[in-house]
Design a protein around this nucleic acid. Sequence first.
DNA 1: CTTGGGTCCTGTGCGC
DNA 2: TGCGCACAGGACCCAA
Length: 288
Amino acid sequence: MPELPEVETVRRGLLPVMEGARIAKAHVRRPDLRWPLPEGMAERLSGARVVRLRRRSKYILADLDRGETLIIHLGMSGRILIAGADGVETRPGTFHHAHPAPGRHDHVIFDMEGGARVTFNDARRFGAMDLVATQAAEGHRMLVHLGPEPLGNAFHENYLAAALRGRKTPIKAALLDQRVVAGLGNIYVCEVLHRARISPMRQAGRISSARAAGMVPVIRTVLEEAIAAGGSSLRDYRQADGELGYFQHSFRVYGREGERCVTPDCGGAVQRRVQSGRSSFYCATCQR
DNA sequence: CTTGGGTCCTGTGCGC
DNA sequence: TGCGCACAGGACCCAA
């Protein structure tokens, strides 16, 4: 899926068309995403104004002026595409021809006041949406167990060291555990561990407090660099405006099996190994 | 409680 | 060119 940097990039792309704007009409074309969409979602969204577009971990939250919040998760393959209002009224009475026909995996469409169209597209349908009272959003079952935001103040050296203490699971799995820290996925965990020179197989609880603490600034830096680059474009993921992010060019290990390790004076090679069903890319020479 | 594995779904790219 | 298989950014659910 899009991980935190990609979701943040999507949110930023949506800001100009969604925040402060009214959803003229919402269309649900396929209600069976990961879970069934909430009852009457299209009707409840149509006519509502988005007062704020937030992000929590890999979730986008749209607070509406009706006291409800739309929660969106992109799953593995979810995308949000924006089609501008350009050419909407090529000539009078042709509004319905302004946007091309929806594609096979365009499951939810928001036609914004002003003509822009926001489309949720998700081939694998691991994505999810729910619409709940804004007051209840933080306590939603998808959000309530999330750990701290890695770019927020609650995520700090002492916290991470304590969170890993005593854990027997490999550090790779611990960092993927959204209760430990919220927003990392397979790619960024691989990148973080390489920069921190920690083996993905090392037991989380066997990392010294100092080294555990040292991962905090690495996590922040990797995520901030990725956000600044507009996220990573891999397979079908793109920014909301269709532009490609370019952080994938900055990957040091992810997808680089067989290449030389880029750590100065290391000389090792990047290896791939499956851990609990996910590929870990790492250098066995400098990651310990 | 923690941990590991299977599962949902579709598309793509590779080797033969 | 066609076919089958491995693999893909997530996270829930259940068994041990």
